[in-house]
Design a protein around this nucleic acid. Sequence first.
DNA 1: GGGACCGTTGTTAACGTTCACAGTCGGGCC
DNA 2: GGCCCGACTGTGAACGTTAACAACGGTCCC
Lengths: 338, 338
Amino acid sequence: MGPVVQRRPPVMADVAREAGVSHQTVSRVLNDHPNVRGETRARVLAAIGKLGYRRNHVARALVTKHSRTLGVVSFDTTLYGPASTVYGIEQAARAAGYFVSIVSLTSIDRAGMRDALDYLTGQGVDGIVVVAPQRATARALADLPLGVPAVAVEGGEAGDVSVVCVDQAAGGRLATEHLLALGHETVWHVSGPSDWLEAEGRVAGWRAALEQADRQVPRPLTGDWSPRSGYEAGRVLAGMRNVTAVFVANDQMALGVLRAFTEQGVRVPERVSVVGFDDVPESAYFSPPLTTIRQDFGAVGRHSIEVLVRQLEDGRHGLERLVVPPALVVRASTAGSA
Amino acid sequence: MGPVVQRRPPVMADVAREAGVSHQTVSRVLNDHPNVRGETRARVLAAIGKLGYRRNHVARALVTKHSRTLGVVSFDTTLYGPASTVYGIEQAARAAGYFVSIVSLTSIDRAGMRDALDYLTGQGVDGIVVVAPQRATARALADLPLGVPAVAVEGGEAGDVSVVCVDQAAGGRLATEHLLALGHETVWHVSGPSDWLEAEGRVAGWRAALEQADRQVPRPLTGDWSPRSGYEAGRVLAGMRNVTAVFVANDQMALGVLRAFTEQGVRVPERVSVVGFDDVPESAYFSPPLTTIRQDFGAVGRHSIEVLVRQLEDGRHGLERLVVPPALVVRASTAGSA
DNA sequence: GGGACCGTTGTTAACGTTCACAGTCGGGCC
DNA sequence: GGCCCGACTGTGAACGTTAACAACGGTCCC
């Protein structure tokens, strides 16, 4: 009687003894090897159940050299975009039978990236997904340790690794063309920080659309993704009489722009139309509800795992590049020009 | 000459040979054992550098029985709250020298929790942090495997584990008392889903504040944290002439409420005051800027790791309960009653 | 001068699993 | 009956690290 003693957890040898077989037979049962007699398998399974045996992944990893763990390097998973991407990655990885180990970068530089990669490879991950939205992080991909398969998400033209990304330029173009089609003479732009690849792609798409339509290209204002920076840009834009359409590089900043416009008495969409980017869940409830570009973060996460697992299991190293298209979501913040 | 051949990565024995010592001495250097001669240490370090040796954590974990990995179980890390908490946990864990393995629950039930815990313990984590905001998840903590130290975040009165949480009731009370102090007769409430502990705590705080001031307690409206559900609640409230103050259980829903009020011509704060909860980065730029309750998610994450690491390293199992106080942030969505 | 002791190093044996190989048993076939 | 082959099972040796213990040389002290 008395309380159950805290015993050393059972190992394969214990199961083997209980079932009256060798440890190797237990291993075979666990790994679904074909050549095990049905009756033997049942006996082993029973012993496993009785003892509450759980296979030791660490010992397994030591000999197989595979940890069935994937490393994820990300930056500030508090932001909606990275958070959604990482969520998609985690779900897809688990579905594929892998664990996920996450490192969030605090510093953006090459050294931070190198630390993160050292950290993960040292732990013995089978592969790495790098969410590399900044130019610096993308460049740091060159430091990737050889021999560990990797996939970059939003990694630009990262030299040596496969890339999964949203077509940012197409998104910028979509937003701009929507505004142009509504009759606006030109479109102003509040961009993200210049060292972010996503910001750069959106600028490029916006510029391309304007040039293609032979319009004047205004100097873009630069924000830092935060609502506050959008607010500041919005105050500037509100003071300019000739502004009738603004493409803002993300929804958070667009919120700031809307706020500044409201304060300055600039009516949206009557006097100025505004388009955002991301389609965060809140954007449909802004005042007015925001026209924006939707990115399918879940799809990005899933695809990145697909690509990585393919590399892992085929052993091939063919560089893939998978581009997810964005979509325009029209709401009430855009209207025709007077 | 020629390209560097892709060799098997060096192991301790290789370093030992290179440095002319035994592998055990290499191990000692790596683990900062005191009794190694300075000159020997230097020679080993040089060999490590020359060969590019990296310690194999898996082999180490096998013999020490410590993986230096912490498991985190969370629910929908796309939401701002969980995302911020997990971010705080990850940062704190790394600072304490631990890896972090994350599992996001898709289903809320006991089975999902059990799977997640099996998953993590099978991988050999040293400890587990469970972000358990729902009643069901909290209840499932009872299933926690014995012998693995664990900490619950927002776990209510989870039986057997330490808990770190924000004082939700205090937050609800803070919001309600703020509105009462402004002269409102009573305060209406849009709550979160009833199976969330946080929602429950906020309701309790709100109710307590009203009862203490001897006010009528209206029937709360129930949402699901989403802006849409807030919008729907807002439409209902907009139709009720006697509503002058609303406490909404999170900022996202508060945004929906504001949107509904705007559409119905209900002016905030002139006719109705609104208080949110969370202080998401956007809330300062809502129309009007939202008065809300700030939760320090980073602190919650840090504390949970502190508690867990203490249990891990002291081996003690004393139940701790750490409560983080919330704070009122007054902005422009609240004003005195007419 | 001899024994105890300390600092330093090496040797051997775990840890719990999988892999490679070697058995054993029975049946089919010539 | 002997041979081979296939299905099934067991034996031993890895994997790369740390822990336990032994060994060595020198110093200190009586």
